[in-house]
């Protein structure tokens, strides 16, 4: 059965020989507070330990029932139930209990997976689906599971640096029903969005936003650059004039240059040039957790360090859990990405 680094704080696993005994074991749940059903889909063996580790971290903080569906080709059928508990009964710092069911679903039909998952979720609790699988649209298992969820979490740059997943997400946005969408690639940009917004928090610089003449983004994967470009465009009322150009409300063309460089899932640099000033935010050469923000030109500003906060996956997953199920700013940015990539 799948093992994870999170097991260090877990009870001895209960290996269920059939799913009825698994349900019976869950019914004897010892956890005393539960906040959600957390369905996790894995179909990439190289990614499995990474996902399981992050799932365990979520359970460390949010008492939840995690249903890990392991569709990797080497996964064995059957299920393991693991309950987390404080590794030291007197330790006041780890007090959350959670339970994790790991099920090997390779070889099971979509209908079996859906029925099994539905029967293991608890009523009256929100259900979050973290889909780490290859592809979204046209995946029967995805279609089946997303109907069980209130919120969907994906990562458009989780395992790939092209724009394939984000393009699929655009298509899903139009077809989805009531499920809220969270993309970790988008959520990872929050500090960058904050840094860019911060340039213009000073009311005397506000009008600069309406005289942007070029935008340049360097990132390790395409999703981040597309999202940042789409976000700026949708906030400022620009329209996409092609894959690499926007037009502002006055019809002025704004070249958008994105370059793929550096680590996957990470933005390296953003530069925004207005008619008077160039605003730049670039990851520090000395410490990749720090960004140097500065401006040159009329509104010049000396370099200043800004820490990149909470861009690790467990923090992003936690935000996805805590924040509401819809994010209008995200959706309008995603639609703009759709226009850019059409």
């Amino acid at each position: 059965m799948p093992q994870s680094p999170g097991d260090v704080a877990m009870t001895a696993p209960i290996v269920a020989t059939d799913f009825d005994s698994l349900r019976a074991a869950l019914a004897r749940s010892s956890i005393s507070a539960t906040t959600m059903n957390f369905i996790v889909w894995i179909d990439d063996v190289g990614f499995r330990d990474w996902v399981l580790e992050r799932t365990a971290k979520i359970l460390d903080k949010h008492p939840a029932r995690a249903i890990v569906l392991d569709a990797c080709a080497d996964g064995k059928p059957g299920a393991t139930l693991v309950r987390s508990e404080p590794d030291d009964a007197d330790a006041a710092h780890i007090t959350v209990q959670g339970e994790r069911v790991e099920i090997g679903v390779a070889g099971m039909s979509t209908e079996q997976i859906r029925e099994l998952t539905a029967s293991l979720t608890m009523n009256e609790l929100p259900t979050l689906l973290w889909w780490t699988g290859k592809g979204i649209t046209g995946q029967p298992n995805f279609d089946a599971l997303v109907h069980l969820a209130d919120s969907l979490v994906v990562d458009s740059s989780g395992t790939r640096n092209d724009n394939a997943t984000v393009v699929e997400l655009v298509r899903f946005l139009d077809s989805r029903r009531s499920v809220g969408i969270r993309d970790l690639a988008w959520m990872r940009l929050r500090p960058w969005q904050d840094m860019i917004a911060r340039f213009f928090d000073d009311p005397t610089l506000r009008e600069e936003l309406y005289s942007v003449r070029s935008l340049q983004i360097i990132s390790g994967s395409d999703a981040e650059a597309l999202y940042l470009g789409g976000w700026l465009a949708s906030r400022l009322g620009w329209t996409a004039s092609g894959h690499d150009e926007f037009s502002d409300q006055s019809g002025v063309r704004i070249p958008f240059r994105s370059e793929r460089a550096g680590r996957i899932r990470r933005v390296r640099s953003v530069e925004l040039t207005t008619t008077t000033t160039t605003y730049n935010a670039t990851v520090s050469d000395d410490d990749e957790t720090l960004v140097v923000v500065k401006a040159s030109g009329k509104n010049a500003m000396n370099g200043r360090f800004v820490p990149l906060q909470a861009v690790d996956s467990p923090s992003l997953l936690e935000r996805a859990i805590l924040e509401g199920s819809t994010d209008e700013v995200f959706e309008t940015a995603l639609r703009m990405v759709g226009a850019l990539t059409a």
Binding site: R190, Q193, I196, A197, D201, L209, L236, D327, V329
Partner: peptide
């Protein structure tokens, strides 16, 4: 001045 349109949905806890 117009509100900063880039602040929509980005609530910052930073002290202003």
């Amino acid at each position: 001045p117009r509100p900063n349109p880039l602040r929509a949905g980005i609530d910052s806890n930073r002290l202003q």
